[in-house]
Design a protein around this nucleic acid. Sequence first.
DNA 1: CGCATTTCTTACTTTTTTGTTAGTAGTTAA
DNA 2: TTAACTACTAACAAAAAAGTAAGAAATGCG
Lengths: 116, 116
Amino acid sequence: MRKTNSTNTINSQNLNESCGTANALSLIGGRWKLTIIWRLANGKMRYGALRDSIPLISERMLVQQLRELERDGLVTRIVYPQVPPRVEYEVTENSLELIPIIQSLSEWGEKQLVNL
Amino acid sequence: MRKTNSTNTINSQNLNESCGTANALSLIGGRWKLTIIWRLANGKMRYGALRDSIPLISERMLVQQLRELERDGLVTRIVYPQVPPRVEYEVTENSLELIPIIQSLSEWGEKQLVNL
DNA sequence: CGCATTTCTTACTTTTTTGTTAGTAGTTAA
DNA sequence: TTAACTACTAACAAAAAAGTAAGAAATGCG
């Protein structure tokens, strides 16, 4: 949980509010968020399928990142009233708009990899 | 300091190597890096001027972020052999290529801010 | 000598993020 | 009645990032 009054949090909030890019990074910056969005970009997936497609992630992290993505309007959670449960995740329009940007960032990022 | 064999580090490295965007985020994701690049985008600045232009940053963080930016080829450090010292920082070509991408990310990020 | 100047260092603490392990809920079907 | 199935949740531990406070080096100048 975040403290609301730490210098750390205050600095972070200031930057997010005054800089769109900082805000964008705070939304997609979690360790597994891009991976999740990338997996979902081709269509919705069930929780279990998503998990199996990202072998190294722990369930704790998967759920946490999904919750944050949902809270921030990047992913929709669809619950089917069944037992055993069936839950699907889908990217939102907001996420889709992000994809071309991510792609150019990716090209730049790959170039930096080579530059070492 | 980073441990070389923690799950945390290993996961991070895997993602960076396999995904250009993850790598890009690892290069510009530090708390103050975008701010620094943004300040330097209009021309080189002395250490003190840079510090004064970012009032909330501590010297420790400023130096640390600058060192990482330099290591990653995003900023050049120019030392003039004088006393008292004179050090200037300048963005590299790599950083300049990043700026249009940052700008589209910024537009997206601002839209998300409004969407709350 | 001793002080001012500028760019950092160093040692340390706090806060945040990420990871580990074990377990839960609610129903169906054997 | 018990196990199986799926999507989580909770308590805890480890690691990383960010922040605080104080001081250090090198030299010119009064």
